[in-house]
Design a protein around this nucleic acid. Structure first.
Lengths: 337, 337
DNA sequence: GGCGTCGCCGTAAACGTTTACGGAGAACCC
DNA sequence: GGGTTCTCCGTAAACGTTTACGGCGACGCC
């Protein structure tokens, strides 16, 4: 772990100037003899260029940061996983920030961009506030937002389409003959909670189904909350299908239905959202609305690359199409996923 | 996104030298008047220090890299998640490398440490080869290895104890009266595969159970491979319990047992390994050997912090104790996890 | 042979910090 | 009032690169 060689060390050993060393190392035109001398010296010394010094000069760090609430959440894992190869191919490193869904933490990450430790930031905010919009406008490096952002915000933007996703799920349930389709949602003051509530209502309307408030229940986005919400819902009415705002909620619903001796999917069909790894692990395997986390991550990374190569292009908005992944919790013939 | 202010800008505006600006910003003793002038100027300009320049001077990047095979793997997710708060509290950023289980990629990461883009590297190699050992010895920054490493290797080391873990699982199954305990393992040329094979054999011996080769089957570490291996095993013998080398294999085993009408846990008890999120999601919920991924991540991060503050301390080895998490796949009264 | 051209190379400045060093002035003591 | 000490501050060097600029020798041309 001794002090590593620098271009100065190489220059001395090769008997040339540091400028020549730099030129050789960067492939600029140089005489054959110099090239050889430098190459040999660099090889012998085991030279590795110092990326910090390079960054200072070039004002490029070759790093991109990604900020999300919690890396334990499968949605974000899928995004990271999909970003990784895109960035790697472009020679960029990935820095991870977990904000614990803390808005001040998110804003702090935005502010810290001024430290120039990264060339750009991909952020998936838990909720987009006024202060976020200001921070986006003042950001000292390109920002790509995963999640919706008002038109005119000077950032690139990748969106999911939970409206269409829920529509797909309800169409599927309707086609299976289900007419009393319950909805177990997350909190309405979160971005996905609010969007999914609207989407559910609209889908009912379009299918010509009645709006029955008894069929709607709200809990948090975790398994126990989903179970509790399902219990409350079953206590007052009898649905023949349950749409759940994420896969954990759906697992909770499965727990309760099983405990009450309700058959899935014969008596009640269950649909999750996000199509995480948990969906195929459940029994019966969970039909789930895939909102394209991986695709969103990949597209965000691509937008970032474009932005880094052309800083003044118009901000772009990309919407990722949802897919419905049908498994055993809605179609019994799909018994083994 | 204009060119940000530097200490030079501040110095001009405050009418002092850049040295004074730096002193104020770093809290070194300075006159009251200068402090105020600099503070005001910095505030007005919205100054944020450039971390690259600082790094060049201090040769500290405040970044730590973590290299693992695949961020999609729940084991690594748990590690990352646990490292994050430790590093964050120490003011360190986390850089993620996915190596796709490619040894050359791993070695490349090690070599690139010479670029000094990070102060240290935590790596969880898929397998530790001779070339790894050389690379560890030549690394230009501190390395912490998650996984076992021969004594004398100049790196800090965090180990799981799959031997004890499997022992715990087999004791549990034995206590439940199971005597024909099968083992569905992963490939023997991987570190965990080899270790778990030995551990299984030793546990049998210690329990005084016969070694029946018919009870052992090998596939890859994925669900379908686990299912196929289980099918092969069931075709030739009838175990009353199945120990599986990871949770995905166990899920595959559950699939096959269900398809063949074998009751779990009444006829065959099933145990997974790693205690991932999938274990409680399965039905019946999977008893699993927790090898402490989160704890290993946390300890690795802590070792890194220690190493960064005292570079010459003796390399340390930390072993994380396994735990057996009992759920419905071995004890039916635990029906709902 | 003088002159322009060209290829190669070295000097030095720059990126934005931190910090060693020394100078200027005030305060203090005798 | 001269010396010592102390506080505060500015100058400049350094971290390891990249790159603009100019010098120098070789070569070709008239």
């Amino acid at each position: 772990m001794r002090q590593g060689p620098t271009i100065t060390t190489i220059a001395e050993r090769a008997g040339v100037s540091i400028a020549s060393v730099s030129r050789v190392l960067n492939g600029l035109p140089t005489s054959e003899a110099t090239v050889r001398a430098v190459r040999v010296a660099a090889e012998e010394l085991g030279y590795v260029p110092n990326s910090v010094a390079r960054s200072l000069k070039s004002s490029r760090t070759n790093q991109v940061a990604f900020a999300m609430a919690d890396i334990g959440n499968p949605t974000y894992v899928a995004m990271v996983r999909a970003m990784q190869p895109v960035l790697k191919d472009a020679g960029l490193r990935l820095i991870l920030h977990s904000t614990d869904a803390d808005i001040d933490d998110e804003l702090d990450v935005l502010r810290r961009l001024g430290e120039r430790y990264a060339d750009g930031l991909i952020i998936s905010p838990i909720r987009v506030t006024e202060r976020h919009l200001e921070a986006f406008a003042e950001a000292r490096a390109p920002v790509v937002v995963i999640g919706s952002v008002p038109a005119g915000t000077p950032v690139d933007n990748v969106r999911a389409d939970s409206r269409t996703g829920i529509r797909l799920a309800l169409d599927h349930l309707y086609a299976l003959g289900r007419r009393r389709i319950g909805f177990v949602n997350g909190p309405l003051d979160t971005v996905p909670g609010a969007a999914r509530a609207r989407a559910y209502a609209d889908a009912l309307t379009e299918l010509g189904l009645p709006h029955d408030p008894a069929l709607i229940e709200i809990g948090d986005f975790y398994r126990e909350d989903g179970a509790a919400a399902t219990r409350r819902l079953l206590a007052r009415t009898r649905p023949d299908a349950l749409m759940c705002a994420n896969d954990l909620i759906a697992l909770g619903a499965l727990d309760v239905l099983r405990a009450e001796g309700v058959r899935v999917p014969e008596d009640v069909a269950v649909v999750g959202t996000d199509d995480t790894d948990l969906a195929p692990a459940a029994w019966p395997a969970l039909t789930s609305v895939a909102l394209g986390s991986a695709e969103r991550g990949r597209r965000a990374a691509e937008l970032m690359l474009d932005r880094l190569s052309d800083g003044d292009a118009e901000p772009r908005v990309v919407t990722v199409e949802p897919r419905l992944v049908v498994r055993g919790s809605t179609c019994s013939q799909k018994g083994i996923s």
